[in-house]
């Protein structure tokens, strides 16, 4: 594990790579994200599905070899569901998530400042209502269980195998259904 300035330097380097990747994969552009939600453009869906399929397999083997350990924040059913619904409405309006807002600003899209302002205000707003939230939404259900791990990747009871399989089958299907690509 990296510490101190090495940790910071690695984070900046990985951030630069991530910013590069967001522009190269079109994730930074509002129009391509909107077209993905309108089911008009399959490029981003294919990127995300490939990332899901390859990432789940990669992380399974890295955890199996004890190279990395699981790092997941505790999930609550209702908090995740309500959070997902609210975020979904916001995504349809602005077509951006925190890292793509920063990338869009880097690419000169100054209107993304409004989205950033809304996001920063939301953080303060949640801080303000954290008391009522803790006594309501997080109490409605117990924390979700940690992911189960199978000893063998090809074990039919291994959820990672199913995710990889469904991702790549969906990817093949989408490859033939979506052919158009939109430009920024």
């Amino acid at each position: 594990m990296l510490e101190g300035n090495y940790r910071l330097a690695a984070a900046i380097f990985l951030g630069i790579f991530c910013g590069f990747l967001l522009v190269k994969s079109d994730l930074a552009w509002r129009k391509t994200c909107l077209n993905m939600f309108l089911l008009k453009d399959g490029r981003l869906i294919k990127t995300l599905l490939f990332s899901l399929g390859s990432g789940v397999a990669l992380i399974y083997y890295l955890q199996y070899a004890e190279v990395i350990t699981p790092h997941v924040r505790p999930g609550f059913f209702w908090a995740s569901l309500i959070g997902g619904i609210i975020s979904g409405v916001g995504l349809a309006l602005c077509c951006r998530v925190p890292i793509t807002v920063i990338a869009a600003l880097g690419a000169g899209r100054l209107y993304a400042l409004w989205t950033l302002a809304g996001m920063l205000l939301a953080v303060s707003f949640v801080d303000l209502i954290s008391g009522p939230l803790s006594s309501s939404i997080y109490k409605w259900s117990t924390p979700l269980e940690a992911p189960q791990k199978a000893d063998y990747f090809l074990d039919p009871g291994n959820p990672a195998l199913w995710v990889v399989g469904v991702s790549f089958i969906s990817l093949l299907f989408i490859q033939f259904v979506f052919r158009g690509e939109s430009e920024e």
Partner: peptide, 17 residues
């Protein structure tokens, strides 16, 4: 769209953790 969308996206993300 920018401000309301950003607010809602982050609100949902904060709720989900």
């Amino acid at each position: 769209f920018g401000f309301a969308g950003g607010f809602l996206v982050m609100l949902g993300l904060q709720l989900a953790g």
